[in-house]
């Protein structure tokens, strides 16, 4: 299946034989996956299956967890991100992440977005343009352009989440990881984020973890199903939802267990 996908799209993230342990407990087992560039890849599976752990490997967020051990190879654009001499801060600039609960900084809307470019040394004049561009790309500009100096925490949950997406885009990543970005949002905000994700794949490669099966079906090009630390099946979203190869995938997406 992965081979078939590779024929039509250029691989951006290549994972080979990835294993991960939290102390004694193995959380990921022999993961092989090739994620195509400028596409949306959804990762689904029951709680504790390893899908969040997996995307956290893609920008080395697991480095922050004590007793976490990673083996195997994760390459982005052909470069091993666990290799010697990799600057993790620089890596996370290229591989941004949006979390389940919107987490704006307790400062103004403007400063939330300007924060990243500032620490990366972008000059003050240029930052203004970056902020507007990021807010426009996140489909938030029209709603908040008249109160850009207001506290970010005064925004609604859906707006806060789009602000976090804008903040991620402001440092110009190539890849954006989404870990359950809509689970705390109402259906309208969810629809806006979904539209946004589909629009963003033109410029970014997107990997999204979701528990919402319909969401995965609606917005992704490729879907991977994780179960107990293994990647059971990875393929075109349409094929996964219409005619999966593996019985456990079918049982999961049709709600027969989980």
């Amino acid at each position: 299946m992965t081979e078939a996908i590779q024929n039509v799209a250029k691989t951006q993230i290549e994972v080979k034989d990835l294993n991960l342990w939290y102390g004694e407990k193995q959380a990921l087992m022999n993961i092989d996956i090739q994620i195509p560039k400028n596409s949306v890849t959804a990762l689904i599976g029951p709680s504790g299956c390893g899908k969040s752990t997996f995307i956290r490997c893609l920008n080395r967020m697991n480095d922050l967890i004590k007793n976490c051990r990673v083996e195997g190879k994760v390459s982005i654009e052909g470069r091993d991100i666990y290799g010697a001499g990799v600057d993790v801060v620089d890596l996370r600039k290229h591989v941004g992440m949006v979390f389940q609960k919107p987490n704006p900084f307790p400062m103004s809307i403007y400063d939330n977005i300007a924060y990243g470019p500032r620490i990366h040394g972008v000059n003050k004049k240029a930052i203004e343009g970056v902020v507007e561009h990021a807010l426009r790309s996140a489909a938030l500009w029209d709603e908040i352009s008249d109160r850009i100096q207001s506290p970010a925490l005064s925004l609604s949950g859906g707006q806060q989440q789009r602000l976090c997406i804008a903040r991620t885009m402001a440092v110009k990543p190539e890849i954006i990881l989404f870990d359950e970005p809509c689970s705390a949002l109402d259906p309208i905000s969810t629809a806006k984020i979904e539209d946004l994700i589909m629009a963003l794949k033109k410029d970014y490669t997107i990997v999204i973890v979701t528990h919402n099966m319909q969401q995965a079906a609606r917005i992704s090009d490729y879907t991977g199903f994780f179960l107990m630390g293994e990647l059971i099946e990875f393929g075109n979203t349409r094929q996964i939802f219409e005619n999966p190869d593996k019985k456990s995938t079918e049982d999961y997406i049709t709600g027969r267990f989980g």
């Binding site: 099966m213 319909q214 079906a217 939802f241 219409e242 005619n243 999966p244 995938t249 079918e250 997406i253 049709t254």
Partner: peptide, 9 residues
């Protein structure tokens, strides 16, 4: 119920 896969078929 939003049936999928074999159920949808």
């Amino acid at each position: 119920q939003q049936p999928l896969a074999g159920d949808l078929r």
